[in-house]
């Protein structure tokens, strides 16, 4: 039982990170119906920015309080990845809006390749380890919960609350949902559709950057190729929860996190990714609208 709860805790941590990435997929898919294949690499980029900021901070100051360091890393990572995603949308995706359906997906795949290789070329192909930032571990009834895990869950929950508020209660969120449901009508009502889509990309990137920072803090290492697998899993999470739905993305992320940690604990670590990918296939085939998603009218 203890072992099981321990795995739940680990799954919750992992799932929070997947969930944060998944929200970016879900928002972009919701608003322009495109799988932003490069989103996983945006996440990786966020982790790299956090890494560089961390190294800058440790080089400049003798010691920095962990909270301050984390905050600075997060904020800079959010800014930088937002700039990347904003530019990418403007340069690579926007001109193809209204082109045939595969065009943006292909471009996004190209972008994904370019981004990860850009980081490889500029920062080198090796793993980039950092010394542990937070190492406190609490023991609660035989279950060890690390401070890292607590930070991850707290950050995720507060961001989720913030985003839920943004999307459901502000005019910006309303404009986003309007663009999602009928872009032309939104424009007829005075919504600047291009700007709204840009903001959606920025919001997705910011969350991915936070996920990247947390990833770096949790694992203490990042490499240029770390975007792909979490990206695909986060997409799985988005689909599992019902693409287009924000709480769905988070729920999907948690489920994937649980499944992955349980699978590793009880079956085989080797096949944990096989499990995740199989779930993706099974969900898409048998439950294409996801758990919290709306049944999609089949688009032909």
């Amino acid at each position: 039982m203890q072992y099981f709860v321990q795995q739940m805790v680990n799954g919750l941590t992992l799932g929070s990170i997947y969930g944060l990435i998944a929200i970016g997929y879900t928002m972009v898919y919701g608003i322009i119906g495109m799988i932003n294949f490069a989103h996983g690499d945006i996440f990786m980029l966020g982790a790299f920015v956090a890494l560089i900021v961390f190294l800058t901070l440790t080089a400049m100051f003798y010691s920095v309080p962990v909270v301050v360091a984390l905050l600075v890393m997060m904020v800079v990572a959010m800014l930088m990845t937002s700039l990347y995603n904003w530019t990418i949308e403007k340069v690579a995706y926007r001109p193809l809006r209204g082109s045939f359906r595969l065009a943006p997906l292909i471009t996004a795949i190209g972008m994904s390749i370019a981004l990860s290789n850009f980081v490889q070329v500029t920062q080198g192909p090796r793993n980039k380890p950092i010394p542990p930032m937070v190492s406190t571990v609490y023991n609660v009834g035989g279950i060890s919960i690390s401070l890292k895990q607590i930070i991850i869950v707290i950050v995720t929950v507060s961001l989720l609350a913030l985003f839920w508020y943004l999307v459901n209660k502000t005019s910006l969120g309303r404009a986003q949902r309007a663009c999602e449901q009928d872009r032309k009508m939104a424009a007829l009502l005075g919504v600047d559709v291009d700007r709204t889509i840009s903001i959606t990309f920025i919001m997705g990137a910011a969350l991915a950057a936070v996920a990247g920072t947390l990833f770096l803090m949790y694992y203490g290492v990042v490499a240029f190729s770390d975007g792909f697998v979490p990206g695909v899993k986060a997409f799985t999470a988005a689909v599992l929860g019902g693409i287009g739905s924000l709480p769905g993305a988070m729920l999907g992320g948690l489920l994937i996190g649980f499944i992955e940690s349980m699978w590793s604990a009880y079956f085989s670590i080797d096949y944990k990714d096989v499990a995740a990918f199989s779930i993706l296939a099974i969900v898409l085939i048998f439950l294409p609208s996801g758990i919290l998603g709306r049944p999609e009218v089949e688009k032909v």
């Binding site: 949902r177 449901q181 009928d182 009508m185 424009a187 007829l188 009502l189 559709v193």
Partner: peptide
């Protein structure tokens, strides 16, 4: 002018097919 700016000049339309946002 871009569509949204035309709308902001205070022209409003109830278009063909009504185009209500169905999930709002």
């Amino acid at each position: 002018l871009p569509t949204h700016e035309i709308a902001r000049m205070r022209i409003a339309q109830s278009p063909e097919g009504r185009r209500i946002f169905p999930r709002m």
